[in-house]
């Protein structure tokens, strides 16, 4: 029972921390409203662009490089998802699991080398 209570209490703390983390900005910004001046003008509300008149929308199509790096990230992040439980349970699994994990990582490493050779990792 102590373990269950420990679990519940711990996540209760997490919920309280989340609540406080959200409340602080809200409270600070609401109270700040009473203190700060507020007289917006047309000039003030333009977007900053180093002094020139802003032109076009800023939300343009972005370079595909970012997308490719995101794909690489997903591959290796999934790898870590497998590595974590393996590392926790390593004591029980032993040498056999080490060799198996080595094969798994080498397979993904081949993918990394392939991406490297294909110049995916090059950021121009």
């Amino acid at each position: 029972m102590a373990d269950l209570f420990n679990y519940q209490n711990s996540y209760l703390v997490v919920v309280i921390f989340l609540g406080l983390g959200i409340l602080l900005p809200i409270v600070a910004l609401s109270l700040g409203r009473l203190l700060r001046p507020n007289n917006p003008s047309e000039q003030k509300r333009t977007t900053y662009e180093s002094g020139i008149e802003p032109f076009q929308d800023a939300r343009v199509q972005f370079n595909a490089r970012y997308y490719i790096f995101a794909l690489m990230f997903v591959i290796f992040d999934v790898e870590t998802v497998f590595l974590y439980p393996w590392a926790v349970a390593y004591e029980q699994l032993g040498l056999f699991a080490l060799i198996e994990m080595l094969i798994f990582v080498v397979m993904l490493l081949i993918g990394l080398i392939y991406a490297w050779k294909k110049k995916v990792l090059q950021w121009i």
């Binding site: 983390g21 959200i22 602080l24 900005p25 809200i26 600070a28 910004l29 700040g32 409203r33 203190l35 700060r36 001046p37 507020n38 007289n39 917006p40 003030k44 509300r45 333009t46 977007t47 900053y48 802003p54 929308d57």
Partner: peptide
């Protein structure tokens, strides 16, 4: 605390307000 809070007119209002909270 005493600084004026300016919000650009072309900004996405909801997300603009939400972003500092999501970061903090």
């Amino acid at each position: 605390l005493l600084k004026e809070d300016t919000r650009p007119k072309q900004a996405d209002k909801t997300l603009f307000v939400l972003a500092p909270v999501i970061a903090y």
